[in-house]
């Protein structure tokens, strides 16, 4: 009886409270190398980040997976730029918004930074501290969505 009540209570809770971890977010890191082939065309190759030295271009791939039985809406992914890296853009068609202060998000060319002397200047890629993607469409049950950004190792 007691067990049944607990079960009922749990079921009721599920109906109104958020479900725990019905989604997964995976990050992967690669090093990109541009090699000019014999035909003179530069090709970018992607390798696991086993060899990474200052100046290298690092590629991050984030994969969101909806493990719930219903579509996930309003998927918003926030990625702080890791220490030691300078943001170098996103490879995504829908470019993410960025922030230089962790509060205001917008396109990079619309953001400003305050300099030491109090004046403000247009923000540069090196000023970006956070990256944020917001999916306009829902991710169906069992579906995945991928996001990428590049950064340069300082």
């Amino acid at each position: 009886m007691k067990t049944l009540l607990s079960g009922l209570f749990l079921g009721a809770a599920c109906a109104v409270l958020p479900l725990a971890a019905h989604a997964g977010l995976k990050t992967e890191v690669f090093v990109e190398t541009s090699v000019v082939g014999a035909d003179g065309v530069a090709r970018t190759t992607r390798a696991p980040a086993a060899r990474a030295v200052p100046g290298d271009q690092i590629l991050y791939v984030l994969t969101f997976r909806n493990e719930a039985a219903k579509p996930a809406e309003g998927v918003t992914i926030t990625n702080p730029v890791p220490q030691g890296l300078t943001f170098a853009g996103s490879g995504d068609e829908a470019a993410p918004l960025v922030s230089v202060d962790g509060r205001t998000f917008g396109p990079l060319d619309r953001l400003t930074v305050r300099k030491a002397d109090g004046s403000s200047a247009p923000a540069a890629a090196g000023d970006v501290t956070q990256i944020r993607w917001t999916l306009p469409q829902a991710v169906p049950a069992g579906g995945e969505a991928s996001f990428t950004f590049r950064a340069t190792l300082k």
Partner: peptide, 22 residues
Amino acid sequence: INNTASVGYSIGGVAQPTVNST
């Protein structure tokens, strides 16, 4: 150099807990 991200989303109009990435 470590990278982690987090994701917020809703299911059926109910906001779900933030999920941290690997």
